[in-house]
Every structure is written in structure tokens, then in C-alpha cells.
Design a protein around this nucleic acid. Sequence first.
DNA 1: AATGAATGAGCATTCATTCAT
DNA 2: CATGAATGAATGCTCATTCAT
Lengths: 215, 215, 215, 215
Amino acid sequence: MADPKRSNRRGRRSREEILDAATRMMAERGYAATSLSTLSRETGLPKSAVYHHFRSKGGLLSAVMARGAYDFFAAMRAAHAGGPPPGTPRERLDWFLRRTGEMFVSRPDFLRLHLLLVMSSEAAEAEVGALIGQVRRDGRAYMHGMISAAFAGEGAEIARAVADRLDHFAIAGFDGAFVAMQAGSGPDLFEQMRLLAEALAALGEARAGELRVRG
Amino acid sequence: MADPKRSNRRGRRSREEILDAATRMMAERGYAATSLSTLSRETGLPKSAVYHHFRSKGGLLSAVMARGAYDFFAAMRAAHAGGPPPGTPRERLDWFLRRTGEMFVSRPDFLRLHLLLVMSSEAAEAEVGALIGQVRRDGRAYMHGMISAAFAGEGAEIARAVADRLDHFAIAGFDGAFVAMQAGSGPDLFEQMRLLAEALAALGEARAGELRVRG
Amino acid sequence: MADPKRSNRRGRRSREEILDAATRMMAERGYAATSLSTLSRETGLPKSAVYHHFRSKGGLLSAVMARGAYDFFAAMRAAHAGGPPPGTPRERLDWFLRRTGEMFVSRPDFLRLHLLLVMSSEAAEAEVGALIGQVRRDGRAYMHGMISAAFAGEGAEIARAVADRLDHFAIAGFDGAFVAMQAGSGPDLFEQMRLLAEALAALGEARAGELRVRG
Amino acid sequence: MADPKRSNRRGRRSREEILDAATRMMAERGYAATSLSTLSRETGLPKSAVYHHFRSKGGLLSAVMARGAYDFFAAMRAAHAGGPPPGTPRERLDWFLRRTGEMFVSRPDFLRLHLLLVMSSEAAEAEVGALIGQVRRDGRAYMHGMISAAFAGEGAEIARAVADRLDHFAIAGFDGAFVAMQAGSGPDLFEQMRLLAEALAALGEARAGELRVRG
DNA sequence: AATGAATGAGCATTCATTCAT
DNA sequence: CATGAATGAATGCTCATTCAT
């Protein structure tokens, strides 16, 4: 079944190949619809290799998610390194969101699988459920950082308060835009990002105004 | 297996029972992970009843989607019957979105399955793919109606232009909020709806302002 | 399912339609591989019609065989009506066998199904088994008649003795030639028939010679 | 289901067991009527073993045919090793055919299945169809060898010409005699073989005579 | 460390049949 | 007389998993 030229002394590489294929397939078809037989056929590696490296199909899913999350956030940090140039909150949000949108386009697999699992309650299986929760918390924290950076000009306290209020909303805007992109409906993703930046800026400035008055 | 008291002359009822159970199960676990054996066990009806009524598992999915869409939009129209009381666009959007949010909470199954299918490319199987596209178009048209109703005070032309610009964004806001609700993360759905109303109002008014100046 | 224009008051016709389709399908695919669903789809008549007219799938098989046998032997008698012109046994056998070969070519379904059942021990189911035995006996009797007619010039007694000896062999020659025709191998059926006639003539004359000497 | 003492390290043996049972069952009931469930029950091996060893039910059929053909022709060669003693063509044909008849009686499974497939057009499924054609060609070649050996005394050229003319006819005689044996009708197989030998001798000598005159 | 052989449980689907109308 | 609805049993097949090597 396996390519005979493939040595049997290269565990690390096999692991990565399985992980790559599984990420792609699970993101395309979902967890339940991804069979180890197909995975094996597509990688040229035996089914037992999955058990060798990941203990079970569920373990493979966990690994896929863990690596995906790690890579995703690393890529996010890289994309945003240096931070936006000075400017209005809206300009700064625009800068952040445009770059984030580029990530969505170039690495959709992780997000797709993430949303699939969120919706399908296959997550309920403990281990993965925890990972998903962690990813959502990390995502929100990341978003929080972006928003407060955008409103840094209002002072740290106000920036934080604004971000507290808007981070979930921003996450929802992302998720929704990603769904629309997957559906092939809607305007292109970057147009959506621009509107989201505009909305966040408007909401954030309104909120900052209130706080300035009160403070 | 089946209740022996169940006559063999009640096709319509069996059909509905299967449809109910399938809607719930597919929304919970996804299409692939919903097995006809489990469905049969849960309804007490034989597996062959599915084939009798729906021709195939795919046909059942189509029927689930078709009925779900029909019921969903009917319930939406019922929830919004009469329309919002007079007021500012934001107040009117608030009224619309609060009621829509209630729908999400009370009938999440259809939306869950819809999003699951959008993400999982099981939709690619023709028949269902078309249905999903139709649902998204209908949803967007519905949203368009809500937004232009909210901005009716600006005149029909401007209201329409605003809705043209914002309908996709609003859909994304809904989808994202629904995802957050499913994930159990984020503030409650109604808080999200309020923010979305505020954002749409702000974006819409800015857009209307531009148009008034140009006009 | 059924053609709506088809009245529900025409039992005789439905019966024949089912019989026609079943004869064809069973001859093509065998009894086990002929499903009532397919039969129903192909005739446009409901599956229950089979039970109405034939009591069971096995009953349908019996009816197919019975009608097939009846028709087949009637057609044989028609083809051989009048009998061969005077001539040598070989010429007369040639005449018989050429005409029989024409039957094989023009109505292969019954023979195919017959051989299929003979080989497959689905015949073991009593009712059909008996029918098959009857068909083989009738066939042999028919062949006996042909051979003794061919050798009538040797006198009735010798003609009968020759036919007693050769009828089974002739049947085997027929069956084998029919098999070859179905397999698409071998020379055309009529060449086979000519050789068979030659062989029967040679064998018969040798036998007749022996008998004449003894007598 | 399986014998628990059966180790999971004996693939070769399982393969043969399945092949044996399948050969017998398919020859008895035909391909379509042989179910993997019954096969599994009868071998004590799980259904999945069939897929492990043969990829599909069709693959099992191919393997059954391939092994059957191989064994059959090997046994034929063994039965005819050494060749017939010197004598007239008829004596030599008698020797060949008697031995061949013994094969039919002692190993009827392969031939039964072969004829079943020839008749039932399940063969049309490519892979098996090709195998069947090959078997018929091999059979004919074998028969050709037997006939020309029987007529070797007439010289190689004439012997070949006689065999060219009669091989198909001889095959048909075999097939027909085998059918009669399966049907339980007719005289015993060896009587049929004797008549066939006589017929082939008569036809062959007539043909050889013609050729001698012409040559 | 890595794998091919093997398997039991479960899958979607089709079957022949019954029965109320 | 004729049928559409309904179903339990069985079908061919795929699944995730184990285990000896």
C-alpha cells in the first residue's frame, strides 16, 4: 500500500504528512466524514500510522487543532508585527483587519474546521471541546489587543474599556464574514473587513465619548 | 422494532416524525454523523421508511432543509408582522433584531444545520447546494427589507441604497452572533443584537448622510 | 409510480406485461438478480401487481417458465409444420436443424432462462424444478420425433431405435451450440447446426446399419 | 462470530478458505444468489475478510474464476499426461474423452460457475467477462490439441485441418453433455462421451478423406 | 518505530412481502 | 380487481481499531 521507496524510519515526517492531509480533509468535509481509510489512501501511509502517532482518530483531531491554532496565531502575530502606523482608530482598525482578512484567505483550513467543530457538537468530546474553548478565548484576547491598540490614543483605560465592549462583536463580525466567504455569497472579504472596521470605529468612538464624559 | 400498534396507514405522520428527528439530529451532529440506524432507533420507525418517504439519505437532507427554510422564514414574517413602531433607525433596527434574536434562540436547529452545510462542502452535492444558496439569498433579501424599513424615513431611494450596502454585513453579524451563541462564548445573544443594531444604525446614517449631500 | 393514464381495470394486460418483462430480465440476469423493484420500474406497474397476479416471486418464475415453454414448443411446431422434403436422413436433419437454429436466434430468452435454471439449482424449489424436468422431457420427445422422421426411410422400427439412441446426444448438441452462441464464441450457430446434422446422420446411419444386419 | 482461537496471523489460509467456500456456493447458486453474509456464516470468517483479501464481491468472483481455471487446466493436463495409446482416431478420442468426462464428474464446480456466468451476462462486468473469454479460448485450444493428436496418423497438416473444423463442435458437445449431467437428465455422462467420440471420429474421418483427395 | 493483517460493529441501501383500502 | 404505503430482514460495503511482528 505504501510507497515502497518510503523508508520506515522517518516518524517525524510521517506525522507531519498525516497532519497536513487531515487538516485539509477535515476542514473540507468535517470530522465525521473524514475516514482514516481515505486519509491513508491519500497520504500513502498505513492506517496504523495514525494510531502510532496519535493514539486514535480523536487524538488526530486534537493534534490537528493544536497545531492549527499554534500556526494560526503565530501567523497572525507575524502579520501584525510592528503594528499599524499612527492614525485615527478607524485607520488603525483598517490596517489590522485588512491583514487579518489576508490570513483568512490564505489559510482557511484551520478556521473552517474550527467553525465546523463549534457548530457540530462533535466538540462535546472533552479533549477537543477544551481546545476549541481555548482557541476562542485566545482569539478574543487577540482581538482585544487589536482594538485597544487602535484606541490607544484615548488613553489606556478607555482603550481597554472600549475593547472590553467590542471584542466579542468583532469576533462575530469575523466569523460571519468567514462564513459568507465559504458560502461564496456576499461581497469579497476585504469589503466586509472595511465595513467591520468602520463599524468598530463608530461604536468604539461612541463608547469612548461616553466614558470621557463620565470620567 | 416498531410499535406494533402503529398502523401501516399513517404515512404522512411518519414522514413528519422522521423529518423532526432528522432536523434535530443533523443540526446537532452534522449530516455525515447522522446515521439512519440511529434515526430509526430514535423514531421507532424502520430504516426503510426513510427510503419510502425520501428516496435516500440525501433526499432526507433536502427535505429537512426545504421544510426548515419554509418554516424559518414563515416564523420570521410572523415575528415581524406589523413592523416596528415609529422611531429612529436605531430604534427600529433594535426592534427587528431583538425579535430576530428570539427566533435564533427558539429555533436554532435550522440555522445550525444551514451553517454546518455551508462550511462542510457536503453541500457540493448539487441538490442541497442549490437549496443552501437559495436560503442565503432569501435571508439577504429579508435582511434588505428590514434595513430599508428601518431607514424608510430617509426616503425610499436612500433607504434602498443603505440596505444595498449593509445587508451582507448584517447577515455576517447574525451568523457570527449565532456562532458565538453555539460556542457558548460571548455575551448573550441579545447584547450582540443590540450592538449590531447600533452598528448598522451608525453605518447606515453615515451612508445616508453621504447620499443626501450628493443627491 | 404507475402511468396515471393506465386504467386499473385491465388485469389480463398487466399480467402479460409483467410476464414479458420478467422473461426478458430473468433470462438476462438470472432469477436471483432480477428484483421486483426493477421489474416494477421497468413495467411501470406496482410491485404488488406481481403478488396479485402470481402470488410470489417464485410463482412469477413458474409462470414465466410455463408460458415460455408453451410458446417455445408451439413455435417449434409451427417452424417444422409440413415436415422436410424427401431426401437422405442428412438432408432431412439439416432441414430440421436449420429451422430449429432460427428459433434459437429469434427467441433466445426462454432457452437462456431454462439453462440458467438447470445450472443454478434455484430449480431445487420444487415447483420450478418439476417444470424444468418437464421441459427437458418435452424437448427430448420433440427431438426424438425429428430424428425418427429423418430416418423414416429405414422403417419405423429402425427409425425409432436410432432416435432412442441419439435424442439425448442431439439435445446436448443443441444446448452446447446455444451456450457457444451466448458466449459469443465459436462459429455461427448455423454452421454448428450443419455439423450436428452431419454427425447425427453419420451416427444414425451406422446404428441403422447395425440394426439392419441384426434384424 | 469467528473462532476466537483463530489467530489474526493466517491470511493465506483464510484466503483459501473463502475461495473454497465461494467456489462451491457460486457454482451451486450463481453469483448474485451467493451472499457474503452466508459465505461469512459458512466459513466462520468475518465479512470484512472478503474485502481485505479480494477488495469486493466482484473481486472475489474474479479470484474464484482465476483459480478455478488454473486448477482445471492443470488437472486436465495431468489427466491426459502421456497421451492415449496408439490406435484409430476413434479409440484415441475415446481415451481422451473418457478422461475428460472423469474430470467433469470429479470437479464440476468450476464448469458450472463458468456456464452460469456465460449465460447470465453478469459476465458483462468487464474483469470477469475477460476471464471467461480467456477460459473459452483456452478450452478450445485444449480441445484442438486433443483432436489433432487423435488424428496425428493422418499427418500433421490434415490433423490440424480436422481439429480446426471440429474443435468448436467438440466444445459444444462437452458443454451440452455437462448441462445434461447437471439436469440429471440423459444417459450417464460416459455414454455421452462415447457418442461424442464416435461423432468426432466420423466427422473427422470424412473431413480427412476430403482433404486427402484434394491434397 | 512502524506496519500489514485482521476484524466486529455499523453504514446506506434494496429486498420480497403484507395489507388496508 | 388493483394498488400505494409500509416494513423487517438482508445486502454489499466501510469504519475505527487492535495486534503480532
